[in-house]
Design a protein around this nucleic acid. Structure first.
Lengths: 218, 218
DNA sequence: GCATTTTTGTACCGGATGGTAAATTGGCTG
DNA sequence: CAGCCAATTTACCATCCGGTACAAAAATGC
């Protein structure tokens, strides 16, 4: 709790845990859980296998730690978008930010929660399930936020907000698939333009929230 | 060419090539290229490794043959949807049929072209690229079809038809991610309902194509 | 019947995998 | 200084990986 971390009696660690984890994130992100071998991981992390096992326990636990840190860093933007004042603003800012994140420079394209392991060998089926659960969390938060918007009169009464959230998350996951395959940022933003027209169709009549011009790219 | 196939001189084959390929499709579909071991494959196909290598050449060639047959069987519905008379009907029938295919019984949920290997070990990066190219083919065909629709006055003049196609394909790929994680058919159809509202926004004024009621599920 | 041809079953190959045992290193404590 | 202890290095483990060599089996052609 603070900067005066207790430095135990033994030999001090030759690496910073968070830094090593960041390196591991990249490897998992690029190659997936099964495509990332321990040799790849330790080489990128700058440590060797016994150190990895002492600190992280196993490859699976390392992966889960990596996903958790990925959420708290690379996907930290998502929570903020839920605080936009209107449903339309929430969806717009989430999808815009997602495309920017999916195609950002300085890290692999796409999304760790999908590339990590959409389907795995029978022995690793737990990884796919773990990631599916992880993805479901934000979809649930978005659905709740949209349900609140409907109560606040910010969406047409009777709107299926769960379906709306599922639509938004499906689109962003499909955009992640495109990004992983090398799609350009502005092309994905143009697809978001289309999606926003759908959201606009759910606004109550006379609602002034819909945008005058489409902003493509960033 | 016909039913009188030439039966060579040697020992006759103990299996039908297409049947074995169908079994392989399931294994790749469920576990991905890297998650499907040769042992898994040969066990499911009912043959042993030398037979597999004589007939299919290698694991990679087997996979590509599997994807080709998958396209010609499980995804055969897609080509037909392009022949619907209007842009709206094309998109609606494609998305409806895609959800039904993604959640169909009697085969793994989701889509082989995504689960097969969104990201791979460095040695298998060719697989991800192969699948990305495969996915791009139908997106291109859909974009062409929508461009024709715009020329025919079936979509607003000036519509970004490439973006529209990218939107539709991104959504369907995201629905595939959801399906692979176990999403229910009717929940995915409800997300399609939302998407169709976006398409409706691109119809010329006074176009009577938009549906009166949303048909959820099938 | 016998040689030929192709597929089959079995057993094996080198290499990589995730994971560890054992011993060395290096810094703290007394 | 000696004693301790954790993190390091190195070497190794059993197992599985994709892929093959080899010989037995089963059909045809002569």
């Amino acid at each position: 709790m603070g900067s005066t971390a207790y430095r135990g009696r033994g030999r001090p660690r030759g690496f910073v845990e968070e830094e090593a984890l960041d390196r591991a994130i990249r490897v998992f992100w690029e190659h997936g859980y099964e495509g990332a071998s321990l040799s790849d991981l330790t080489a990128a992390m700058g440590i060797n296998k016994p150190s990895l096992y002492i600190v992280f326990g196993s490859k699976e636990e390392l992966f889960k730690r990596a996903v958790a840190r990925y959420r708290d860093t690379y996907v930290a933007y998502a929570a903020g978008t839920l605080e936009e004042p209107t449903a339309y603003a929430v969806v717009e800012s989430y999808l815009r930010a997602a495309v920017d994140a999916l195609t950002g420079s300085g890290h692999p394209p796409g999304c760790l929660s999908i590339q990590g392991g959409l389907s795995c060998a029978p022995a690793n089926s737990g990884i796919s399930e773990f990631l599916a659960g992880y993805r479901a969390v934000f979809e649930g938060e978005l659905a709740q936020r949209l349900a609140r918007a409907e109560k606040e009169g910010d969406l047409e009464a009777g709107t299926d907000t769960a379906a709306l959230a599922r639509f938004v998350m499906s689109l962003s996951q499909g955009l992640a698939v495109h990004a992983a395959a090398g799609a350009r940022r502005e092309d994905l933003q143009a697809a978001v333009d289309v999606a926003l027209r759908a959201i606009a169709a759910y606004l109550p009549a006379g609602n002034p929230v819909a945008p005058a011009t489409e902003t493509t790219g960033a």
